[in-house]
Design a protein around this nucleic acid. Structure first.
Lengths: 254, 254
DNA sequence: CGCCGCGTTCGACAATGCTAAACACTATCG
DNA sequence: CGATAGTGTTTAGCATTGTCGAACGCGGCG
């Protein structure tokens, strides 16, 4: 195992700590949380502040995340090839399905949402790009764990929280669901993450037939389900979209 | 001047370099661009990759920005107090004005967009949160330079690109406009950044009466202007919104 | 095949960033 | 009202840490 740069690891830990805690954090809190001397933490924070990754409240002296992170994070989206290819197809999927569409990739024991098309009505909705979804309970997460070995390995290690009464937390049970997901080529989520919300998702592959992400539709159970299961035409639409994006990425059909 | 941590500065420079170049960059490019030994650059990149700030294309070995930046950047928005307070008011402004609304803060020689409400019609629009706008040609930028001394200092230093024939680049001329902006309490942009696009913006102050950001409306000249100038009712609506947000932040109306 | 380019690893040196202690400052409290 | 217990910040010195230059393995190209 090659050694990584210590100060960078510590800086990253600080950013993650600041991202976790809702409110701003003081220097002493940060230093003790990471087991560092105050001066050490201060030096790192000073540099991060100078680079714009961290901001300091002039009044209280507390620290919070900086604007440069937003700028760089947005740039990440611009470069993201999967997202660029998917843009064209997700709009159509949202329109034909009449529900919100999500595009996600595996990131650290969860699904990172890299694109989100609002449900096509005039209701107020909040953009969830950049947010994380759990691996074991959402359709996006299940489809990714089923096809991506890295994601699967992380699911086994991670603790699986029960969000609702229907959330699967038992490992053998989950494995059976993943097996079926691989067989049928898509995954669903019925009340397993949020009460009254269901979703379908299908995997997207690149030119080497490796899973690089997943598209899915999410909506209220009353609208997206019929007879206690997801409407077949929605499942078909999602799978079609996933195939189209995969083809755009260079994956051979068949 | 206190000294900053070298490895962190270099890591930040790499992230900014990767954000700048459209395509993925190779290790040698990065090392030579920053004047570093290949091994040094590699060590930093390896750590950044391990922390999720950078990703490496398995095929070509090239580097690009990582997903963790998107996650952290979004978290920045969640914590942002100005944005949280403004959310309520900007929707109303977009509806009453019938145009797109932007909320921006000063960041490194430019305006960083932290909130964006789409123009309320069914046209396809792309979210510009996380994008940068120039300081000297947009209404948001001018209003911020007029009231924020830090932004003003950076404007003087920076080079002022002429985007259209009407862009102001001459410093004394800009100073006169800023003087008028301070006097009247708002700024405009008529064809100075994009042809056929105009905007109005007003400053937002915190409890210490310091400028912390600006709200503005942007739209096609034909819609937002009349008789060659911005419609007075739009100007009034923008200023009202700015005042409301300022009051929410604790600024005394006195 | 031999060449260059790539990303990666190795090992040694010293510059670098870490630690601990003291510093100013504010708010709190007896 | 002075003492106290918190802040965040700065300083000085030591040795850990990151840096450097060179060599390595690999793949594509001529």
């Amino acid at each position: 195992m090659a050694k990584n740069i210590q100060s960078l690891e510590r800086a990253a830990a600080m950013l993650r700590l600041l991202a976790g805690g809702e409110r701003r954090l003081g220097l002493s809190d940060i230093a003790s949380s990471l087991g560092l001397a105050k001066a050490t933490a201060h030096g790192i924070l000073r540099t991060l502040q100078h680079e714009g990754f961290v901001e300091q409240d002039p009044g209280s002296g507390r620290y919070q995340l900086g604007a440069e992170l937003l700028r760089l994070g947005t740039t990440y989206l611009d470069v993201h090839e999967l997202r660029a290819r998917a843009l064209v197809w997700t709009d159509d999927l949202a329109r034909s399905g009449g529900e919100a569409v999500y595009l996600g990739v595996v990131h650290q024991q969860g699904v990172l949402i890299v694109h989100h098309v609002f449900r096509p009505d005039d209701s107020r909705q909040v953009l969830e790009v950049g947010a994380m979804q759990p691996m074991h309970s959402t359709a996006l997460g299940k489809v990714l764990t089923a096809f991506d070995p890295v994601a699967h390995a992380e699911l086994v290690e991670a603790e699986r929280e029960a969000f609702t009464a229907r959330t699967l937390t038992d490992l053998p049970e989950i494995e059976r669901v993943l097996e079926r997901t691989r067989a049928q080529g898509y995954a669903t989520d019925l009340d397993e993450t949020w009460e009254g919300v269901a979703s379908v998702a299908a995997p997207i592959f690149d030119r080497h037939r490796l899973p690089v992400g997943a598209v899915g539709i999410t909506g209220a159970v009353e609208r997206v389900c019929r007879d206690g299961d997801l409407r077949p035409e929605l499942v078909a639409a999602v799978r079609d979209t996933a195939r189209s994006v995969s083809r755009d990425l260079g994956a051979k059909p068949f």
